[in-house]
C-alpha cells in the first residue's frame, strides 16, 4: 500500500468535497464521508484502533525491556524480592565482571558456533526439501507437507523427549542400530558424556524442528516464481543449477533472507531443549547464552547478572536484527 495507490483509488470513491488537509495524510477510503464531522472522527480512528495493542506492548514488552537495562546496572538478588530492600546501584560492575569472565566468552563462542551449525543446516535442508517438493507428484507433496506439519506442530518439549529416548544410552534406538553394524559397539554409549556429540544431538533436534517452517515458507515462495521465466532461461541455454542460481533464487531471496535471519534469532534463544535433555541441570559445557542468562538469574539468583547477560545477547543480535528489519521494510514497501 503506497501513496500512489491511495491516489489511484481516488476516482473510485467519487469526487466528493474534500477538506483542505494534505491528501496523503488520510486514506482515500475515508474521504467518502458525507460531513466533516465523520472525517474528524476517522482521523482519530486509527489511534483508537492501535491503542489497546500499544498499551499491551508497552506494558508487557516495552517496560520489561527498559527494566532489563536498569536491572543490569543494579545488584538485584532473590532476597531483594522478598525483603523489599531496593537493590543497590553498581554501575558497570555487572558488565565488567561478565566481560572479564573467560567462562562467559566460552559461552559466547559456543553459542555462535551452535547457531551457525543450526542455521546452515536448517536453511540447506529446508531449501533442498522445498525444491524437492516442487518436483514430486502431487500425492508425495501432500504426504511430505502433512509430515512437516506434524513435526511443526510438535511442542518443543515433546520433540525433545522423543530425541532423548532415541539417543538414550540403554534403551535408545540409535545405539542399538549402530551396534548392529559390524565391528561397532555402541551398547550403553552415552552421547552426552562428550559435550560435542551432546551438542550435536541438540543441534540435530533444533534443525529437525525448524525444517518444516523453512521448507514450507520457501516452497510457498517457489510457487510464486513464474514458470515462464525458468522456461525462457532454459530456452536461452541455461542448465539446472544456472537456472536456480540466476533465475529462481533471486526471486525467493527475500523470503530466504527473512527465514534465515529469523532462524538466527530463534537459535540464539535455544534453551528448553538443553534443559530437558540434561534433566534440568545442564553442565557448564552445555551452556548457551540464553540458558546462561537464565541460570544466572534463577539458579545462581543474581537477577542483575542474568539481565546484563541478556543485554549483551541483544546487542550481539542487533546487527542481524537491523538487517532483518531492513529486508522486511523493503518487502513492505514493494507491496
Amino acid at each position: 500500500m503506497s501513496a500512489a495507490d491511495t491516489h489511484a483509488t481516488e476516482p473510485v470513491t467519487g469526487g466528493r468535497p474534500q477538506l483542505p488537509s494534505p491528501l496523503t495524510t488520510r486514506p482515500a477510503a475515508k474521504r467518502t464521508g458525507r460531513a466533516a464531522g465523520r472525517s474528524r472522527q476517522s482521523r482519530s480512528l486509527p489511534y483508537l484502533l492501535i491503542a489497546p495493542a500499544l498499551v499491551v506492548m508497552i506494558g508487557v514488552l516495552g517496560y520489561p525491556l527498559v527494566d532489563t537495562i536498569v536491572l543490569s546496572f543494579q545488584d538485584e538478588r532473590r532476597n531483594n524480592l522478598w525483603n523489599g530492600v531496593a537493590a543497590p546501584w553498581v554501575g558497570f560492575d555487572q558488565y565488567t565482571s561478565i566481560l572479564g569472565d573467560s567462562e562467559f566468552w566460552t559461552v559466547v563462542v559456543r553459542t555462535v558456533v551452535f547457531v551457525i551449525v543450526c542455521v546452515v543446516g536448517t536453511m540447506a535442508a529446508g531449501l533442498l526439501i522445498a525444491l524437492l517438493m516442487q518436483r514430486v507428484s502431487n500425492w508425495v507433496r501432500v504426504t511430505m507437507s502433512s509430515v512437516m506439519i506434524a513435526v511443526w506442530a510438535m511442542p518443543l518439549l515433546v520433540a525433545t523427549s522423543v530425541f532423548k529416548f532415541m539417543f538414550d544410552s540403554d534403551y535408545g534406538l540409535v545405539n542399538q542400530l549402530l551396534t548392529r553394524l559390524p565391528g561397532v559397539d555402541y551398547t550403553r554409549h552415552n552421547w552426552f558424556l562428550n559435550p560435542t556429540t551432546g551438542m550435536g544431538i541438540i543441534a540435530l533436534l533444533v534443525i529437525w524442528g525448524a525444517i518444516p517452517f523453512i521448507a514450507i515458507s520457501l516452497h510457498a515462495a517457489l510457487t510464486q516464481v513464474p514458470k515462464e521465466l525458468e522456461e525462457a532461461a532454459r530456452i536461452d541455454g541455461a542448465k539446472g543449477f544456472g537456472i536456480f542460481r540466476y533465475v529462481t533464487f533471486p526471486i525467493i531471496k527475500p523470503v530466504f533472507i527473512m527465514t534465515s535471519t529469523l532462524s538466527v534469532i530463534w537459535d540464539f534463544g535455544v534453551l528448553g531443549q538443553i534443559l530437558l535433555m540434561r534433566n534440568g541441570q545442564p553442565e557448564q559445557d552445555y551452556q548457551l547464552l540464553g540458558l546462561y542468562s537464565y541460570t544466572q538469574a534463577f539458579t545462581v539468583n543474581s537477577f542483575s547478572r542474568g539481565a546484563a547477560i541478556s543485554v549483551v545477547t541483544v546487542l550481539l543480535l542487533s546487527g542481524i536484527a537491523v538487517y532483518y528489519l531492513r529486508q522486511l521494510l523493503k518487502i513492505g514497501e514493494v507491496e
Binding site: 540464553g290 542468562s293 538469574a297 539481565a307 541478556s310 536484527a321 528489519l325 521494510l329
Partner: peptide, 23 residues
C-alpha cells in the same frame, strides 16, 4: 509502529523473563 512491531519480535523472550518475573 511497524518498526516497533518488528523490533520487538527480534528480542529473545528470555531477556524479558527476569523483569517480567520481578514485576
Amino acid at each position: 509502529l511497524i518498526i516497533a512491531l518488528l523490533v520487538i519480535q527480534l528480542i529473545p523472550a528470555t531477556s524479558m523473563l527476569i523483569p517480567i518475573y520481578i514485576q
